[in-house]
Design a protein around this nucleic acid. Structure first.
Lengths: 344, 344
DNA sequence: AGACGTTCTTAGATCGTTCTAGTGACAATA
DNA sequence: TATTGTCACTAGAACGATCTAAGAACGTCT
């Protein structure tokens, strides 16, 4: 048979079980008000017919889809780590996740509208690039939670990681290792890049150090280019905008015959899969994707089920020290020198 | 106002424009049967009220969602390249894409059912791991297209890349460079791994060479481990299961002080983003994600809109030679030797 | 026996669309 | 003038679920 068989509906099940539609509905959604015997009868019939409730019809009537819309950027592996964690958390709370990717030629607004069309009860956006105005407009239709970005106005929830704290940890870590010439390869126009750049400047100044920032971006090639630029005047430590950039930077150092961390220390950001690869072992500032995602799902569900106002959750990241950061060479010799009596 | 405003519906627009629901419906879906003047009136009213049709209701009635379900594995960057291309193609054909990820703790069946619940008219599965039986069962409900895997029974469409041809190209390329000791680091239990392993054996034998295969897997760590195993008896060329594995292999060679491609040639598979990174420049067998995705979307739409039977499309991959393959050293000296008069 | 309270069950309205089968109006044809 | 045809428009029934309100059935208490 080539033709697609008609979908089995409540009515079919009701017929088979010899009861009314309404009773089947009650049983299917586990509502109270059905005797154990008829419950069994109905479940059996549903099972036999392979019945699956039609979520469109269900939603149309009840305006509940138990669906959370999640938009992410397909080119950012770190985003997919958040996606994974969000799935787990949502499913634990009895929600499904509808995914929509932001890709080349597919702006965030398209992604958002696709998610709304499909019936999402709340929207989670990873590092949204929409203007606060646009976000606010969408937030009128459905609760919205922004991940990794917190300047989203007061109608939109946000769950983000404290970029200032993260950069502070990074700088503290490196200075405590003895580094003084530290460069930040920034994220260019990426979300959070401004905050991290500002945080870097502030933190370096507070250590009495010169904050040198070079232009970078969110991926390997950006890091590679920035690394080449630094060739002529190499610092002893580099704080990258993220792990991918850090990989590019490390590669440029390798090409220049420099060893990490012996000659130069490199610190990433995100603590993504890359960082954990056994041959990379990148020291990195972890935003903990899983916790971030879980918090965002919690927020979304709270907003859907309660009447709480939007809130802004900021998590403090933590530092994961692996094998790409160490004391600078000159520092070691300087320390050695310090052990000697000072000859004026 | 904290409360969520009620959705604007056809009725609201009809009121505002002073016409009937039905006419608004006609205008909104661009159907013939409305005068230009009232068309304008309705569009204006819809615009003013910010009306967006409710796809659930629309679908419920018309059983058309113009939605294609696409499942992918969140941990495979190559899959997200396909996702990107599928979005572009689908949107060109007037379809939206519903995404569902296969992740840790989220089996493919969950992903598939989520896509069905949301109203997908056809399903595209990237490298499905479901049994042929299960696939066939789902295919009874909705057209299904398998990507990158072709042994899916005759009820399911498939769009795949010819693994035999791909491996043949790989082996031919390396042998023509002069390699004779070529090892395949396989994909373990991954989809397509069997075919590539078999193809490798067949092709090597047809060249009169010994087919040596070592156990690997689909990611960097797998490649790394396999590379270490090879240390004791290093071939002159390695064909990896995919690019990620190739990266791990290269890393293991680097660690052992071997240079690619000077000491050992390494060939990847997929021609993914990784391969194209300027500091990697991996030679690789390209399956051309964009074309594969486009073909799969075409198939799905054909199945939805026509009554064609399932078919199996097999595309021939092509080789992209970059900087990780070259003639082996000993071969060069052998060639040099060949130039000399043979001393018996 | 009748009134009453539970518990189980059902009819019918409803959600926001699309679709079928009309109704009117107006021009063209006989 | 009556008939036919076209075109713009509309009323009302779907679609497959949920939900409300009300009807059976049954036991318990006066």
């Amino acid at each position: 048979m080539t033709e697609q068989q008609r979908r089995t509906t409540l009515i079919d099940v009701a017929h088979a079980a010899g009861v009314s539609r309404a009773l089947v509905s009650i049983v299917m959604r586990g509502a109270p008000g059905a005797s154990e015997s008829s419950r069994q009868k109905v479940l059996q019939a549903a099972q036999d017919l392979g019945y699956r409730p039609d979520s469109r019809a269900r939603l149309l009537r009840s305006s509940r889809t138990r669906l959370l819309g999640l938009s992410f950027s397909s080119s950012q592996p770190f985003h997919t780590e958040i996606v994974d964690a969000a799935y787990a958390k949502a499913s634990a709370k009895g929600y499904e996740i509808a995914l929509s990717a932001v890709a080349n030629g597919r702006p965030e607004s398209r992604a958002v509208e696709a998610l709304l069309d499909v019936g999402s009860e709340a929207l989670l956006l990873i590092a949204p690039t929409l203007s606060t105005q646009e976000l606010t407009r969408y937030a009128g239709q459905v609760p919205m939670v922004s991940l990794l970005r917190d300047d989203v106005g007061d109608r939109v929830d946000s769950v983000s990681s404290d970029n200032y704290a993260g950069i502070r940890m990074a700088v503290d870590h490196l200075t405590s290792l003895g580094h003084r010439r530290i460069v930040h390869v920034d994220g260019g126009t990426a979300v959070s890049a401004d905050q991290r750049r500002a945080a870097f400047s502030a933190e370096m100044l507070s250590h009495g150090l010169a904050p040198v920032t070079v232009h970078g971006g969110p991926n390997e090639e950006d890091g590679l280019k920035a690394g080449r630029l630094l060739q002529s005047d190499m610092p002893t430590a580099i704080i990258a905008f993220n792990d991918r950039s850090a990989l590019g930077i490390i590669e440029s150092l390798r090409a220049a015959g420099l060893q990490v961390p012996f000659d130069v220390s490199v610190l990433g950001y995100d603590d993504s899969q890359f960082a954990r690869l056994s041959y990379v072992q990148l020291s990195s500032v972890s935003q903990d994707a899983a916790l971030l995602a879980a918090a965002a799902v919690d927020r979304a569900v709270d907003r859907i089920e309660g009447t709480q106002p939007p809130s802004h959750v900021v998590r403090t990241p933590h530092l994961v020290v692996r094998n790409t950061t160490a004391s600078p060479r000159f520092q070691q010799s300087a320390e050695a020198a310090a052990l000697l009596p000072t000859k004026v």
